[in-house]
Write a protein that binds this DNA or RNA. Structure first.
Lengths: 251, 251
DNA sequence: CGTAGACTTGACCTGCGTCAACGTGTGTGG
DNA sequence: CCACACACGTTGACGCAGGTCAAGTCTACG
């Protein structure tokens, strides 16, 4: 995945839920970017660090994380290729935690200034960015519900369903997708221990719902998995239908 | 708290973290609003409901909530007077859950169209709104860490610290503030049962840290409570220092 | 073919949930 | 002004989901 392919992927993500003109798309594609390869398990945005760029993920898998004062980590979001993991930092400098490469990952650093200039020049672009941040919020809210109110097996099933839909280019259900996280990282996301993740994944496998291994997820029974995970995709796709894609200027 | 006082409170909230001109403030103060009184325990924005207005809280306390398919609720955010609880819905229609009045509450309904017109006319206002949504995200992220990785006592102490700072007009620490939530509602927020909330609050009281009763929180020992709750206010206040308050047009 | 990181499994422990009973304050109608 | 109801808070007894600890096993890679 090279430089301009990744920006194109980001534009594709935006246009799923926002209407953009050719000029606006071009403005995104013309953003300056600087590719960096990150080793697995490395933090590339530290907690409470203030950056002057945002990170667009070209390949790999990224976890946004918070931490307790005793150093225990909690992954609060996964970010996939095409996601601008910390677009928010262009508008609010800190507060959304650090970013950790869960496997070998390539990111594109895009200066905040360039993002802000583009957003100023094209208000509809600002709105598309804003809406993208709100999608992250919606995912985060589900994460709270998931971690707070569901048992281990249900929680993991929900995560697998979510990642299936988010991995597809057009929010379609993928029955087989790449998910290069270790069980320990999954545990940090689900607020469990790796031991219990292991047991719960085994249960999902033994009941014929899904297999997670070798950095891939294979879903054998989508309906069953969605039921087991109490998964309803509305929060992910509600704004992808055309009637809901308002534009700032056209009000 | 009347109509225009509440809008002024909202403006005050915005200007803590965003620089606004007089014109921009006036545009917010001129927003059309329609006051509604909500009974305690009533949902006034339902899950997955699409509205054409946002709700500015004039008085009372509001919980944003999600729900599992078995009907168990999880409160994912508290909203206080002066907060625009679902400002996000002006840009992304659904996905952030429902709103429930935790006690008798008065809200101002503000049409999305009016918000969008103001944001279009004044890009810096759009940015201020966007930033406000990102503060909610930052709080939400801490909520995940809190629910996922801290034990009951720590979790509650953290919530009490957060609400102390958010209740103050200028993000100052309040040692005594109104918090009209029942123990059951606190349990829905902390992902505990009301029984365990009761026991944990008792522990905070017995150790001389804080007392919660009669819809008020009294903090006897801020440092102790912050330590017990592993609380670091950075995520709430990081963007209130002037150097971080960039403006869209001035880049 | 050795080493290290990831995965797997078993045995035991504990924080919190569940259930159930009881106390307490407040508003309401007789 | 009492009495009654009802919502909220409090406390005890007990069970279990998931944590902890520890000992392997598997796999990729030098």
């Amino acid at each position: 995945m090279n430089w301009s392919d990744t920006l194109q992927l980001f534009v594709d993500r935006l246009t799923i839920r926002s209407v953009l003109t050719d000029d606006e798309r071009d403005a995104v594609l013309a953003l300056p970017a600087h590719a960096i390869k990150i080793r697995a398990r490395q933090d590339f945005v530290h907690l409470s660090e203030e950056t002057n760029y945002s990170c667009l993920i070209a390949s790999g898998l990224v976890g946004r994380f918070g931490q307790t004062s005793t150093g225990v980590r909690q992954i609060t979001a996964f970010h996939l290729p095409g996601d601008m993991a910390d677009l928010n930092s262009a508008v609010r400098p800190i507060g959304l935690g650090g970013l950790n490469a869960l496997c070998e990952t390539v990111i594109l650093r895009i200066p905040h200034d360039a993002i802000r200039v583009a957003a100023t020049r094209f208000p509809a672009l600002a709105e598309a960015f804003w809406r993208d941040c709100l999608l992250d919020s919606a995912i985060l809210m589900q994460w709270v519900v998931n971690v707070g109110r569901r048992d281990a097996r249900t929680r993991l099933a929900h995560i697998l369903c979510e990642m299936s839909i988010r991995s597809g280019r057009d929010r379609e259900i993928l029955l087989n997708y790449q998910f290069p996280a270790t069980q320990e990282q999954i545990a940090d996301a689900a607020a469990l221990t790796s031991v219990h993740v292991n047991r719960s994944l085994k249960s999902l496998r033994n009941t014929g719902l899904a297999t997670v291994s070798g950095g891939r997820v294979e879903i054998h029974d989508w309906d069953g998995l969605a039921r087991a995970g109490e998964f309803d995709s509305t929060y992910l796709v509600a704004d992808t239908i055309p009637e809901r894609q308002k534009r700032m200027l056209a009000t």
